[in-house]
């Protein structure tokens, strides 16, 4: 008889699928859902009244922002510097009409935080999938790894690779097949389309999500750059020509 809980929350314009395999207090789920809606209200670039929109269009000054918003923006700047500008929230056209869109980092960050809420409440085995970016812990069943598919770019029902992951893991994929071209190269201001998808696997979803975007912008040389700067991360890249490239450590992650 299965323990735990399973819930799908439609928030931040996407489906967040929560799969907890421990017997936890339902209030824990309530806290996570409240957190996700708080993030949506604060950081949504679709909501004109959100602080991030107000700051983006110039209606709020830096001094008007909460520590939370300033901290996220600061983090985005740190990632921009670490990626030599390949990840740049100030070059992205946002739905609110501004050119400030930290969504590429906020998603991963908020899900990593959600995972920490579950952990603080005693959960050790769970998987949170936010629109294809995943933070997981432990195992689905004792002795089994989570089986995580990487979506095939042209066939939504198929996986291009299947991974067996357990412990503390994060996996994020940047691609344009679902939402159309929405990743922009800060150097040109134009949508990038060199690669079909970039998947990064690591431990922290904040990092992994941002770097998936950055490598997508950089194209294939970005994977080599990632290997040099972040040897602890693994990558799986699919080109439009039907070729794939992976880091040497990736094969060990396959199911």
């Amino acid at each position: 008889m299965p323990l735990g809980l399973h819930h799908v929350e439609l928030v931040m314009g996407m489906a967040v699928s929560i799969d907890v395999r421990d017997d936890i207090d339902p209030d824990s789920l309530t806290r996570v859902i409240a957190w996700l809606h708080h993030v949506d209200a604060t950081f949504s670039t679709y909501k004109l009244e959100s602080p991030i929109s107000q700051f983006g269009i110039g209606a709020l000054d830096v001094g008007d922002l909460t520590d939370e918003v300033r901290g996220v923006l600061e983090l985005c700047e740190i990632v921009r510097e670490a990626t030599n500008g390949a990840f740049d929230i100030a070059s992205v056209p946002a739905p609110n009409g501004s050119t400030l869109d930290p969504s590429g980092l906020v998603k991963g960050w908020s899900i990593e935080r959600a995972a920490q809420i579950f952990e603080a409440d005693g959960a050790t085995n769970f998987c949170i999938n936010a629109g294809g970016d995943i933070a997981l812990r432990g195992n689905p069943e004792p002795g089994q790894a989570w089986r995580i598919g990487i979506r095939h770019p042209s066939d939504p029902m198929a996986s291009a690779a299947v991974l067996a992951l357990s412990g503390r893991r994060a996996i994020a994929t940047s691609a344009t097949y679902e939402r159309g071209a929405h990743i922009f190269d800060p150097a040109t201001g134009e949508p990038t389309a060199e690669l079909a998808s970039v998947t990064i696997i690591g431990e922290d979803l904040t990092t992994v999500d941002a770097y998936a975007t950055a490598v997508f912008v950089m194209g294939l040389p970005g994977v080599e750059w990632l290997m040099e700067t972040h040897p602890e991360l693994d990558a799986f890249v699919i080109g439009h020509d039907g070729l794939t490239w992976e880091t040497p450590g990736f094969d060990a992650l396959r199911a």
Partner: peptide, 29 residues
């Protein structure tokens, strides 16, 4: 030494717990 492993894209219809890379909008979900 950093090296990339190149291969050809394949499609698998394996049983999985979750899928990465599907940026599911509320509608397409």
């Amino acid at each position: 030494i950093p090296r990339l492993v190149q291969s050809t894209l394949t499609a698998q219809s394996a049983n999985v717990n979750s899928v990465s890379g599907a940026t599911y909008t509320s509608t397409s979900y």
